[in-house]
Design a protein around this nucleic acid. Structure first.
Lengths: 126, 126
DNA sequence: CAAAATATACGAAATTTTTCGTTGACAAGC
DNA sequence: GCTTGTCAACGAAAAATTTCGTATATTTTG
């Protein structure tokens, strides 16, 4: 077993985007430090990834300062939707119902989360 | 943009598993024909993948006959749960609610699907 | 202003995943 | 039984992703 591809960002790219979405505009050092809380990654590795992401248009940066500041070029909403949409197609052949079913069984869900999901469904109804 | 990794089967591996789950035990030829309905893939490519999957324990086979018969070694339920669980962690930091939200917005959902999801939630309640 | 620390750029290597060419084995039809 | 076609095995190449070493530039410190 190993990987399931999507058309979205790669795993490492996603990790970088998540830091930027959560922490806001950051330097490579800040992103790398954050990532290293969970997984050891060399500074130049993160730097290279972010340079590649810049080329791909996943990030934008301010390089008018010595320590370049990077920002995401796509929203969390768009990226997440794309990733989920891809899994929906590739794994569940488009069946949202089956995807939701697996999502609910993949992890013990709290009563509060269940309530929020119901509220979401109510909104969808309109 | 390109990929989001999981610990589950790779994209091609998943495509093969889906054929076997859906069509039942099959030869490489049958799997390859099925896959080629959607994406051109050489016979030897599919063969190699299936041999690798055999080594990984994703498939089992009957090679007592000339045309080897392959079967999935893991259930759709287990694999799907693993893939979704991985996305849940890597993309949504464990928030089922946010995953479901994106799943519902990724594709126009039918009233019928919505109803079925509600029934699922009712079952979860217990 | 020199030394040390921290940055970026770049290319190459290491990994992982996917693809395919070739070879030899088996089988079916003639 | 020979020819022709299909098959599995295998290794290597291609493609995609991730990692890192080194060189060079800028800033900070003393």
């Amino acid at each position: 077993m190993s990987r399931t591809k999507t058309q979205g960002p790669t795993e490492k790219e996603l990790a970088i985007l998540k830091v930027l979405w959560h922490k806001g505009p950051s330097t490579v050092r800040q992103v790398n430090d954050e990532i290293n809380k969970r997984l050891e990654t060399g500074y130049t590795t993160t730097l290279k990834l972010m340079q590649i992401m810049l080329e791909k248009g996943l990030l934008v940066r301010d390089d008018s300062v010595f320590k370049h500041i990077y920002r995401p070029a796509i929203s969390a909403e768009k990226a997440e939707k794309q990733i989920v949409g891809d899994v929906l197609e590739k794994v569940f052949s488009g069946s949202s119902e089956r995807l939701v079913m697996r999502a609910l069984s993949a992890k013990q869900i709290t009563a509060q989360e269940l309530k929020k999901i119901r509220q979401l469904l109510d909104k969808m109804e309109e």
